[in-house]
Design a protein around this nucleic acid. Sequence first.
RNA 1: GCCGGGGUAGCCUAGCUGGUAAGGCGCAGGCCUGGAGAGCCUGUGGCCCUUUCGGGCCUCGUGGGUUCGAAUCCCACCCCCGGCGCCA
Length: 427
Amino acid sequence: MIDIKIIRDNPGFIKDMLTKRGLNLPIDELLEWDKERRSLMVEVQNLRHRKNIVALEVANMKKEGKDPITLMQEMKIITDEIARLEDRIAELENKINYVMMRIPNIPHESVPPGTSEEDNVEVRRWGKIPEFDFEVKDHDEIAIGLGLLEIERASKASGARFYYLKNELVKLNIALIRFALDLLTKKGFEIYQTPYMLRRWVIEGVTSLQDFEDMIYKIEGEDLYLIATSEHSLAALHANEVLDGRRLPLRYAGVSPCFRKEAGAHGKDTKGIFRVHQFEKVEQFVFCKPEQSWEEHEFLLSNAEEIYQKLGLPYRVVNICLGELGVVAAKKYDIEVWMPAQRRYREIVSCSNCTDYQARRLNIRYREMPHEERTKYVHTLNSTAIATERTIAAILENYQQKDGSVIIPEVLRPYMDGMEVLKPKKV
RNA sequence: GCCGGGGUAGCCUAGCUGGUAAGGCGCAGGCCUGGAGAGCCUGUGGCCCUUUCGGGCCUCGUGGGUUCGAAUCCCACCCCCGGCGCCA
């Protein structure tokens, strides 16, 4: 949620932004509702003031043994009038909230214009695209060939977009998690294993209503939702808190499974483990002061890049254009890893600066010094460190050998009892 | 899931047979001092009106209800502590 004061002060700017994003929201009406709401608030406050005075008089008269019958009648009238005005205020607040929940964050000036994936701007490339002197296989073909992946049986048990990992692939998955956690620990991140279910108000605070529909699984009969990323649970960690500005930035690494409905992705990436309903992820999350957040954004990106460099996976960094930015982020980089079978770069990391958008809804503030009266909203940022299933897919494809084996990247070998290569089982 | 006890400002605590939410700690500023400490004074959340100066309203876990008036009484829910039950 953005600050409604920005809209009051500069409605033209907001309307212009909405137009550029192809959104149509009733800003003029919003401002009228806001104006009416505030004038009704003044009325209610005046009535309450009168009520407080009369209540005192009633108490005094009773103490003196007098009968305050006329004052009590006035009180009744005031109370009814307040209730009437408050009903109208609640009605206005519902309307205001409806619009405010749909107004996206204000983009950073460096966000490229555009409406589709083709308008994203490539920032840089890293690594050498591997050449193969044999026919390149898909990651799932490789994994199934190694006897380390069950897709068809998973679909029997759970449906499409599920999988069983087996043996060395399970260990590879855990190795990737350990590798990322160790790297981030060295950089001063605190590690969190978070709740995997959250209440509705938390999810509403961190994501867009559209994502809520397309992405989030609900637990039947409970006010609980499965997390789509530990970004959500980490953001909620400090909800309704006032943080000590001297201790910012707070840098956290979350590790959790991620559950995603993938509604609206029918027909996309139907093979393998690239786009699935459930995967593991190590996530970077930062709470910081506004003046720190752009530097932190680059820092999170550099950590993610370091991870993929150490894994030896070729990638490129793209600056996501306005139309693809989503509601919550003010700026977003993706890292896209090279997938040899598809002969193109595919998203593997998403690194966002959400500025104060999540902090406002979750009420996360800070004070420069403990004695300061004024509180300000923090900025929140999040970035993938490793999404393990996609990374496994990338490793399988980039490190595949002619005989169907797969070389294990060196940095992972210490986490895999020194294993150097995944070999097909001899029958 | 059942039975108790709780939730009051950054923290701790009183009020809980209805009538302006009391006090302490911490923190900051001031007075005092050669300096420090002690002591004393002031301040310490959110929102709204106001260019400023100011002023008002709200806030006792959350939401309803009763009442002229609710931290206080009633109902529902959330969370914490203890006991019982269940359980990896």
